[in-house]
Simulated assay, not measured.
Amino acid sequence: MEQPALRHGDGTAVPQARPSFARRWLRRLLWLGVLLAVLPVLQVLALRFIDPPFSSFMAIRQAEAWIGGERDFDLYYQWRDLDQIASSLPVSVIAAEDQNFAKHRGFDLDAIEQARAHNASGGRMRGASTISQQAAKNLFLWGGRSWVRKGLEAYYTLLMETLWPKTRILEVYVNVAEFGDGVYGAQAAAKRHFGKDAGQLNAGESARLAAVLPSPQRYSASQPGPYVQRRAQWIQRNARQIGGESYLETLK
Score class of each variant (00 low, 15 high):
Q134S: 08
R71M: 10
L89S: 02
Q133C: 02
E113I: 04
V93T: 08
Y77L: 01
I112W: 09
D72L: 00
L75W: 00
R126D: 13
I112Y: 08
E97C: 03
A115K: 04
R124D: 15
E70W: 03
G122Y: 08
D110A: 14
A111F: 10
Y77T: 00
I85M: 07
T130R: 04
A120F: 01
N138E: 05
L89W: 01
Q133R: 04
F73N: 00
N138P: 03
G69N: 04
N138F: 08
I112E: 06
Y77W: 05
D98V: 02
S132L: 09
H104P: 09
F101K: 01
A95G: 03
H104Y: 07
N138S: 13
L141H: 09
F140V: 05
S88T: 06
A136E: 05
I131V: 11
Y77K: 01
H118D: 10
S129G: 13
G123K: 09
Q134M: 07
A111L: 12
A117M: 11
G123M: 10
Q114I: 03
H118G: 07
T130N: 07
A117V: 08
Y76H: 15
I112V: 13
A135K: 01
G123S: 05
D74L: 14
D108C: 03
L82Q: 07
S129H: 10
L141M: 05
A95W: 01
G123A: 12
R124G: 14
Q99I: 06
L89G: 02
S132D: 11
G127T: 10
L109K: 13
S132H: 12
N138T: 10
D108E: 12
G69Y: 03
L82E: 05
H118P: 02
A115V: 04
Q133K: 04
N138W: 01
N138G: 14
A102V: 09
H118Q: 10
R105F: 13
A128Q: 07
R71I: 05
T130M: 01
V91S: 06
Q78F: 11
Q134E: 13
S88I: 00
R126H: 14
D108P: 10
A102N: 15
K137D: 11
A120L: 11
K103P: 15
R105A: 15
E97S: 02
K103W: 15
D74V: 13
T130D: 05
L75N: 02
R105D: 15
Q134Y: 14
R105Y: 15
A136L: 00
D74H: 11
S92H: 00
A136K: 00
D110Y: 12
R105H: 14
A136F: 00
L75A: 04
L82T: 01
S121F: 11
W142A: 12
A111S: 15
Y77A: 02
F101S: 04
D98Y: 04
R124P: 12
N119P: 12
W79S: 07
A96T: 05
S88R: 01
G69R: 00
D81N: 14
F101D: 04
G123D: 06
Q84R: 12
Q99E: 09
N138L: 12
D81T: 09
S88W: 00
E113L: 08
G143F: 08
F107V: 13
Q133T: 02
Y77H: 10
S132Q: 12
